[in-house]
Amino acid sequence: MIELYVLIGLMIAGSLIAIEVKNLLSAVVAVGVVGLGLSIIFLILKAPDVALTQIVVEIAAVVLLIRATLNRDIAMKYCGNRPFGAIMGILFTGFVFVIALITFKDGLNLFGAPLMTVSQFYPLNAIEGTGATNVVSAIILDYRAYDTLGEATVLFTAVVGVLTVMRSPGKKKEEDLQDSK
């Protein structure tokens, strides 16, 4: 599994570049590279559905980020850290990291050996129960279709939310209110 470690290492390097580089366009491009690496890792770990979705979403997110925010002149200006932000950030992440290191050994399944108490059911019964040969499709659209309803609703909420945030003006002016009264 050496390629997995190489790819994760690449992702870590890419994300470090993304958050520290001064030019914002380079930062967004670096995020794109990280997402691409993630998508390849998904392929290596035998999750083609997720890999396809990841790469497509990656493109959409990067296009949105670049088009909506970065083609302004002043936007390229870099501003640094918050006062004490770096120290706080390092302290907090270090804390989380150490606790996780201590607790992972007792309770988390070993890499490459999932527990699969419930999920062994799905491959055995997917074709008979739902008629779909893609087990992941069978899960998201039949066994756990309610989750997918929620997921679609999240996106719908985000669309209405974006429309709400982008509208201008939000409040009616006082004189209009007087008229309507």
Binding site: V57, L65, A68, V136, D147
Partner: peptide
């Protein structure tokens, strides 16, 4: 491999996209 987390990740990717889009709108 365990197919259940794959289904969960698909959902969580979409949720991530929704959050990102909303944050970008606020940033604009």
């Amino acid at each position: 491999v365990d197919p259940l987390p794959h289904a969960l990740v698909l959902t969580s990717i979409v949720i991530g996209l929704a959050t990102t889009a909303f944050l970008i709108a606020l940033a604009v």
